[in-house]
Design a protein around this nucleic acid. Structure first.
Lengths: 143, 143
DNA sequence: CACGAACATCGATGGATGTCGATGCACGTT
DNA sequence: AACGTGCATCGACATCCATCGATGTTCGTG
């Protein structure tokens, strides 16, 4: 189906006046399926309020935090906390350190850096198709 | 609910040697419930491979893109594309411009900036409880 | 004025996910 | 050795979500 020559026939004249077929030949997905999935997985790890709170608690804590420290401020059961921590662990956002009976969790600074980088990558700041929000131009000079 | 005063009794002795009750009183969630929810919602908007691809396509496209331009590279139906675009629209990541029969979408540069800022905010880079992911355990480094 | 195209919405459905209670395991104290 | 504590896992359940097909609306052309 990708052979739709009619699409190319629509031409990229730029005028959107006639309902021919529309559809200018967009760039094919330069993002591989695997990469898109990995990026989505990283975001999905933070797509829950309680996990956001966990990351925030880990960030604001002066040191590693054990599971039982999280159940109360979050207001959820211990199995659920373990569940969320596992999600964050799988995403590589936190690190686990078993210490006797306890399990201490801490943020992975490298992962957070990766997160910021992905956020930039997603938008490719400075690309063309970005509508400047308000003040036109001036679109985040980023790094 | 959870009036467990015993927790405070555990005290912040700092030594984790005896299984008294553990649980040093972590800082209460400095993140408001509303804020945590908003942050999670922003991440949730990008927690899907197809939406990541859409954002990528919008970013790499030389100009605004209509819905029919997306159905083919994504390989999903038109209603589903509209569904995803609505999610991105609700999250404020894209902007919609009706133009005759077509609807043109473009990225919202301000929203992307906000995304990067939230990613920073989530981790508060430079906070204490962050493991530098240095040489120690070498993590897994995923794929 | 009638037809076709693009798009949003509706209803339905299968799969993923957050939450809980109960259970099992590891470890340190008594 | 026996007990208690912290934690991960299991099974179950309710809910959310991505996807599709069908439908209705709007707009431009013949």
């Amino acid at each position: 189906m990708t052979s739709t020559a009619t699409i190319a026939d629509a031409s990229v004249t730029g005028d959107v006046s006639s309902p021919v077929r529309c559809c200018a030949p967009l760039a094919s997905p330069a993002l591989s399926d695997t990469e898109a999935g990995a990026t989505a997985a990283l975001f999905k790890a933070l797509a829950d309020p309680n996990r956001v709170r966990i990351v925030h608690l880990l960030a604001t804590s002066p040191g590693p935090v054990c599971v039982c420290d999280l159940t109360e401020p979050l207001g959820i059961g211990q199995p659920t906390v373990s569940h969320h921590l596992r999600k964050l662990l799988d995403a590589g956002l936190v690190r686990r350190e078993a210490r006797g009976t306890w399990a201490y969790y801490s943020l992975d600074g490298d992962a957070l850096d990766r997160l910021v980088r992905v956020a930039d990558l997603t938008g490719i700041t400075g690309a063309a198709g970005i509508a400047p929000a308000a003040d036109t131009t001036e679109v985040t000079e980023e790094t």
